[in-house]
């Protein structure tokens, strides 16, 4: 009896991350919530499988992926976002480096941003944010989203995306450099357009 209670507790602690994972793919809070509930129920029904809880989250995400795939099959619609499983070979761009000189100094480099907190309250900022995020090469975007949107730990992202640890550090570094630069050009140091004070 107490075992079931603690199993439920362990499972529900995973709920926020599962929800964000589902939301990112289904783009609908209600559908995401359903998928997570089905996942947790399926997990409870085979509770004996997750005794070694080290890989609990990976196991749950495995179940969740099936639920999401089921949803797309039922609705006979194409996923609105590319599946996380898609591969691409944009690792090539890690060779040349537009952010740093050969000496390791910044090429240009981050200028100050005035009052970034205020941007969070502006609708137009979020359009820009989304554009910048979507401008990342697909695999980089996936790694970034699993880490920063879903909130998986680095080693979990590596498992999810089939990356070595060394690769992970390179990709996340570049994702942050790119996103930062894009936000800088399109929003924070954008001199072309008036945007402040909504």
């Amino acid at each position: 009896m107490t075992e079931t209670v603690s199993a439920e507790k362990n499972l529900s602690a995973q709920r926020p991350i599962l929800f964000r994972y589902a939301l990112l793919q289904l783009r609908d809070r209600e559908l995401a919530d359903d998928a997570v509930q089905e996942t947790l129920l399926a997990a409870l029904q085979s509770a004996s499988d997750f005794e070694g809880k080290a890989g609990l989250r990976t196991w749950l995400i495995g179940i969740l992926k099936h639920k999401i795939a089921d949803h797309w099959r039922r609705s006979a619609r194409e996923p609105s976002v590319p599946e996380f499983t898609q591969a691409d070979e944009d690792d090539a761009d890690t060779g040349q480096d537009e952010f740093f000189m050969s000496t390791g100094h910044w090429n240009g480099g981050p200028k100050a941003w005035a009052d970034p907190e205020a941007a969070l309250k502006q609708l137009e900022f979020w359009t820009i944010y989304e554009t910048c995020q979507n401008n990342l090469p697909p695999k980089m975007a996936k790694v970034f989203m699993l880490r920063e949107l879903v909130g998986l730990e680095a080693d979990e992202v590596c498992r999810e995306a089939g990356l070595s640890e060394a690769n992970y550090w390179v990709i996340m570094h570049r994702a942050r450099l790119r996103l930062r630069e894009c936000l800088d050009i399109r929003w924070f140091n954008n001199t072309k357009q008036e945007k402040h004070h909504a």
């Binding site: 939301l23 200028k111 944010y129």
Partner: peptide
């Protein structure tokens, strides 16, 4: 180094923005 300091602050901000983004999705 101001530029690395900016990078540090701005990547922390990006983390915060990312979390806001998914929460409002």
């Amino acid at each position: 180094c101001t530029r690395c300091r900016n990078f540090q602050k701005q990547t922390q901000f990006i983390r915060k923005a990312a979390r806001h983004y998914i929460d409002d999705l």
